[in-house]
Amino acid sequence: MKITNILLASVALACAAVPGVAMADTAGKKIALSNNYAGNSWRQAMLTSWTKITGEAVKSGVVAAADSFTTAENQATEQAAQIQNMILQGYDAIVVDAASPTALNGAVKEACDAGITVVSFDGIVTEPCAWRIAVDFKEMGRKQVEYLSKKLPKGGNLLEIRGLAGVSVDDEISAGIHEGVKQFPQFKIAGSVHGDWAQDVAQRAVAGVLPSLPEIAGVVTQGGDGYGTAQAFEAAKRPTPVIVMGNRQDELVWWKKQKDASKYETMSVSIAPGVSTLAFWVAQQILDGKQVKKDLVVPLLQIDQDTLEANLAKTQEGGVANVEYSLEDTQKAIAAAK
């Protein structure tokens, strides 16, 4: 008996010395991802990152399951029902990319009351019992106008490409853009369309509005819409404005071609799709008994003129420039937040 205890103590000390090895037992825990939308390259990359990192975690015995579920429509009522089903299915934690910051709060509270850990990211929820992982989307919008103020000091007309209507991320980025225009009044928003964070939708929307617009100096965007916008301007034989990009591979390829041909300059900014992997590890750490702040902020991923080639080289075709998080990365982020 004494020998067994000594061996167990030795194993515990060895595990404690190895970074990333959890002391509490989460091997039997099940985590689910509730995703409200998968209709663009960012969401597809987000799901791919989730599957890659969580698959490795399941295989190595960190957790028992890390299933992902996406609703058929971007409807908060459908996602709320999805979360309620996850409660019934006995998941220990639910990671949520939410359709609404408030409409899911009832279902989230039900999950918390059932003893389930809820971690929201990207599209976060406001229910106090949940954890939130987000970037400053408002700042993402504002900094685009700030960049244009340096690139186009005389200002001019802007075209705003919005995201998916009714989603809080769209509202926050747009609010930041309008705040930027107030800060830099040499700019005026001459038109606004919804591109749904998708190149094809953005191209059609911009093509439809261009005939009624004056000369456009710059285009402020939300991600997944820059290349489609450029195609619409080209098809209309309009001068190409400075289009802020959103880290999608096709946008970066287009930018590189323009840069090589005419020294075209812009910038690109978005949230890394791999934030889903940070949310997974945060959920795992909470299940593991770690103390984690309710609100964590992750930095935006920005690509500039001099970092374009390096980022393009490591972005897969059809994908999005990305950062994925390991357990060690997550532990550092948790510690930094404290």
Results as ranks from 00 to 15, higher is better:
E110Q: 15
F137W: 06
S268D: 00
W50R: 01
L296H: 03
D136S: 10
N157Q: 09
V95M: 08
V18N: 06
E265K: 13
S41V: 14
E160W: 03
V125A: 03
D306A: 10
N322W: 04
W42V: 01
V119L: 08
K263D: 14
E73L: 13
N36I: 13
D171L: 10
A207C: 05
A230Q: 04
G55W: 11
K182N: 13
R248G: 10
K314C: 10
G20K: 02
W50C: 09
N85E: 12
E172H: 12
V21F: 13
K182P: 03
W255H: 11
G106A: 11
P239Q: 01
G289A: 12
M23I: 14
Q75T: 12
L152E: 04
K109Q: 15
I303K: 02
A16Q: 05
A27W: 06
D25Y: 07
L13K: 04
S276V: 03
I189S: 12
E139Q: 14
S60N: 15
M245N: 07
N74S: 15
M245G: 04
Y147V: 06
V108D: 07
G208H: 03
P153G: 07
T71D: 07
V169T: 14
D122C: 09
K332E: 11
V323Y: 10
I173A: 10
C15I: 12
A236T: 01
I124P: 00
I173W: 10
A81N: 15
